[in-house]
């Protein structure tokens, strides 16, 4: 298999800034087919922004993003939407449609894009809800769900069109250990059984280690390190060590830029 085909997503020399803030400065990243790729990094390094760039919810200032070798910047809206049908995305807070029930939320993509008979839609939706353990909640409204349940419903919705590429934005935040384990296994199973490629943004080093084939650690707008979870854990770089082991001291400052603490408490910073 040639190199170009093997890479599902290729990001070359990506620049992106929001206002004066430079978020990406020459980012290069490859995502391989049928693997779980994790994107990690301290808060504020633009992990979610990267997902939005990959799905063209945002447009980069410079550089290209190729999906299956096609530059997504060149797509018109129709082509973009047919590309997006191959994606399933799980948003940080679920992003369920609040005026529809759980069942209708999961059925939403089917109703919008297919003419399947109701019986079949019901069958598919219940199957997906069962996979995330929420078949019993089908008639509830999103407002009645806890955060973790909403995330699981959103996961069922992301899977309902049987996408090629599943994108998870912080899937493990706010889940109890039981649902966390189930979701981790589900991510892996989707990947292995259905041949889906997964992109996963997360800080949860433990869970990433359990599920990812390959991880990228972002810092300062570039890829700071990449490799399998074991390789990252044993990396010698200070930054990688600090992140993987959760240490307060290291190249990444815990404190946001601020004037000297003692000076400020004494009120001398104003002078």
């Amino acid at each position: 298999m040639s190199d170009a085909v093997d890479h599902l997503i290729e990001i070359n020399d990506l620049y992106y800034s929001r206002g004066a803030l430079q978020i990406f400065t020459g980012l290069n990243l490859r995502i391989r087919r049928r693997q779980v790729t994790a994107i990690m990094g301290p808060s504020g390094t633009g992990k979610t922004t990267l997902l939005r760039l990959i799905t063209r919810q945002l447009i980069p200032d410079r550089g290209t993003i190729l999906i299956d070798g096609i530059d997504i910047a060149t797509l018109n809206q129709k082509e973009l939407y047919s590309l997006r049908r191959r994606f399933g995305m799980l948003f940080q807070n679920g992003a369920l449609l609040t005026d529809l029930s759980v069942f209708e939320n999961v059925a939403f993509p089917l109703r919008e894009h297919t003419n399947l008979p109701n019986r079949l839609i019901r069958h598919v939706v219940l199957t997906k809800l069962h996979a995330v353990g929420l078949r019993g909640a089908a008639d509830m409204m999103p407002g009645q769900l806890s955060g973790g349940m909403a995330r699981r419903v959103a996961l069922a919705r992301a899977m309902v069109m049987d996408p090629d590429i599943l994108i998870y934005d912080e899937p493990f935040v706010g889940l109890d250990p039981i649902s966390m384990g189930v979701i981790v296994r589900l991510v892996r199973k989707m990947n292995d059984a259905l041949g889906v490629s997964s992109i996963l943004v997360s800080h949860d080093v433990q869970e990433i280690a359990a599920v990812a084939d390959c991880s990228y650690l972002l810092s300062d707008g570039k890829v700071a390190a990449s490799g399998s979870p074991d390789e990252l854990r044993n990396a010698s770089s200070e930054l990688v060590k600090q992140f993987m082991h959760g240490m307060a001291d290291g190249p990444v400052a815990f404190h946001f830029d601020a004037p000297d603490y003692a000076e400020q408490l004494l009120g001398r910073d104003a002078d």
Binding site: T55, Q57, R85, M89, F91, Q92, N93
Partner: peptide, 21 residues
Amino acid sequence: LMKATEQLSAMEMMAVDPLRR
């Protein structure tokens, strides 16, 4: 609020145009 809770983005990701829907 739909925008603030990313419902519109989610729709776009499901290839549904929020303008139309």
